[in-house]
Every structure is written in C-alpha cells, then in structure tokens.
Simulated scan of single mutants.
Amino acid sequence: IPSCLVRRTFFACPLLKAHSGLVQPNKEIFVRPCRAGSSRVAAVESQDDAIIKWGLLLIPLSTFCLGTWQVQRRKWKLKLIADLESRVAAEPVPLPTSPLELKDLEYKPVKVHGYFDHSKELYILPRSLVNPKREAKAAGQLISSPETGANVITPFYCTDLGITILVNRGFVSRKKVNPETRLKGQIEGEVDLIGVVRLTESRKPFVPQNRPEKNQWYYRDLEAMARLTEAEPILIDADFKSTVPGGPIGGQTRVSLRNEHMQYIITWYGLCAATSYMWYRKFIQKLW
C-alpha cells in the first residue's frame, strides 16, 4: 500500500518520500507532519504586525505633542504682544545715550529736542502704511492691497544732548519719496519730538542687500546708516503727532505680531483625533 514515509532530519523537519510495496520497520523512519516552517512564518508576521501597530501609534502621539506645543507658543505670543503694547503706551522718558540703556528701551517712547537735517534723508523701502484701524478691518483676508512707499529716515540734532540721531519721520508714497515733491512737509527750526526707540536689525532671508550708494535701504542697518549720515547709531520712530501737512505720516511702529497659533492648534489636534480614530478602528475594534 503506498504511503508517505518520513525520515528525520537535523532540524526535525521531515523529508517526504513516496514508496510502494512493503516497508521494513525502521526506528529512523516515522510519519510526522512538518509544522516548524509554518510556525516560523506566523511568528515573523506577528512581529511585523506589532511593529506596524505601535509605529502607526506614533502619528497621533506626535500630532498631540505638536498641538500642545502650539498652545504654549500661543500663550507666549499673546504675552509678548501685550508687553509690546504696554511699552509703546508708556510715558516718554528723556533719550539716554548709553547703548545698554537703549537696548532695554526698545519699543518705549522717548522725548528729544532739536532740529532736522533734511539734506541727508535716507529711504527704507518698500514699506506699506501702518494703519491699525485698516489692518484690524482687513484681518483674515487673503488678499490686501495697501499703498506702498518708503519710510523717511532723517538725521536729527539733539541740542540738549549734543548728538545727532536718526529719526524715522514716517511713511510717504512712492510719488512723494523725492523731497522736492513735499517741501511743505520739511520741518524747519527746533522742535520737540516724541518717538519709539528701535534697534538695528539683521537682513532676513530673501531680503535684498542694502545699497547705500543708491540710497536704497531694505532693512535697518543702524551702523551703516550712522556712518553715512555722520550720526549716532540711534533711531526712533516719530509718533503720529509729529505728522505735518505734506510731510511723512508718523506713527509707523508696527507692534502687532503674527499670531496664527490657533490655526496650528486646530490643525494638529484635528489630525491627532482623526489618526487616533483610524488606529482604533484598525487595531482595537477588530479584536472585539
């Protein structure tokens, strides 16, 4: 009678051989199904499933951590905005000349007395008019078209301090950048002025290099501006009350900061909820 005879191997995995006829008894020959290979495959598949299961769990965990981080960032940003607004609204103090004192006074108003030297005007461009009411009305809009122009930086000799500083008189449209087009706005004689202290800034990515030889400035490099105008590297933004008919529009200190953290919070927590539900349906609910 035909039968499958199995010979024991080194790994206990039987080798099947088909024979016919009578079989002599042999202790080394026995009939036994081989299950070692299938068990090994099942173990590998189970291990792979576990890796995928816990690996995918990292997605909702990561998005939850990012959402929580954005919550903390939003608290920090709101506190920073409130601090800037309180500094700008503080009572003006006399302008100090010490660099260490000036560093602590950024965004705080100071008062000076002296006169302008309009022959050495500098222009930071392109700039848009800072208008808090309009910006609040346009908040959330994807497209806005504010008028562009330049900020006029003018040397100002402080008669009480005996030094020349730089004053951002404010915004002018492109048509009014040439001082000959706004002669009525060129203040003559000594005046009292209140402005907000601003520090130098480094060039940001994608911002062009300043071109002093063409009087084209794209960011506040106070050291370079001071050398060109023979002034101290001190700059203040004149307040809105300094505006005169035909002259630059003062009050061009932007204290509002980008605060889009709530959108990020909703995005990350939304992804966390969605991926958590998908993970639950895939690996937990199917076990019930």
Rank of each mutant, 00 (worst) to 15 (best):
E45V: 15
I265H: 00
F10P: 14
D239Y: 03
N178L: 04
K120T: 00
G162H: 00
V167A: 12
L22V: 06
L235D: 01
I187D: 03
N210F: 06
E147N: 13
R174C: 07
E223H: 10
W54Y: 09
L58N: 05
C34G: 13
I124W: 02
L257P: 08
R74I: 02
L61F: 02
E121R: 05
L84N: 13
L22K: 12
L166M: 13
Q72C: 11
L125R: 06
T154P: 03
A274L: 04
L193P: 06
A89K: 04
I163H: 02
G114E: 02
K103Q: 15
N131D: 00
D239F: 08
I165L: 05
F240M: 00
K75A: 12
R40K: 11
K282W: 08
L56Q: 09
F30H: 10
P212G: 11
E201D: 14
A36C: 15
G140D: 06
V112H: 08
I1H: 14
E135R: 11
P60K: 07
F171K: 13
V152W: 08
Q263L: 12
P233V: 00
N259V: 01
M278E: 14
P205E: 02
Q285K: 11
V41P: 09
K282I: 04
R227L: 15
V41A: 14
T200K: 06
I1L: 15
Q47K: 13
E260I: 02
I265N: 01
R254V: 08
V44D: 10
P248A: 06
